[in-house]
Design a protein around this nucleic acid. Structure first.
Lengths: 103, 103
DNA sequence: CCGTATCCCTAATGATACTG
DNA sequence: CAGTATCATTAGGGATACGG
């Protein structure tokens, strides 16, 4: 069940190595976003996976979730400092992808 | 079925964003290794997953597989140039992991 | 608007045994 | 030594409908 093994590399991969996590973090690099706006940045994601993924990221301390007590509901997501510390990695991953997209 | 979406980041994650791939690439950063040696570097991996993962990495052009026609069989794996171009990313992932392991 | 709850399907992983 | 085959299990993901 536990995916961690002896290598620190895997600790990182366990936090961001899924289909949607890097994408959400990446979009939040530009600043905090309302829930709906963030989800629209990733049209392919299902409602369920979106909620599940932001919950995971929040639990791992990479993003923060702020709820505004208004109607209609308003929720904003933003990167924590820990999340921001992944910026270089995320941009590197994106850069490598754009450079090797040709195959 | 296809995991790629509009973001180059995901192209990269589709190549290395699995449980074992980054680990295998990481160990090969130090130089080429015989199959058995490489596998022993990752004691938790099953035989099946090891073979499957190196096959995937080979198919994606990140590692090369060299078979020596001797008995007993001898196979060496090494990074391709494309694989080597991931070095910075792999080391960054490992570094981030070691710095955030505490939780 | 934002999120939860179900149900269902497929892909990913693992254990074990076997072959050139 | 290196790899394949098979069977079984689990995790990841998606569709849909509903609720504060």
């Amino acid at each position: 069940m536990n995916k961690v093994n002896s290598c620190p590399l895997n600790f990182t991969m366990n936090l961001i190595g899924t289909k949607w996590k890097p994408l959400i973090l990446f979009h939040l690099l530009e600043g905090s976003l309302r829930s709906g706006k963030l989800q629209k940045k990733i049209p392919e994601i299902s409602n369920k996976m979106f909620t599940q993924t932001v919950r995971d990221l929040e639990k791992d301390g990479l993003i923060s979730r702020k709820v505004f007590p208004v109607v209609p509901p308003k929720v904003k997501y933003s990167l924590t400092n820990k999340g921001k510390s992944l910026e270089d990695i995320l941009r590197s991953l994106d850069k490598w992808g754009s450079e090797n997209y040709l195959d």
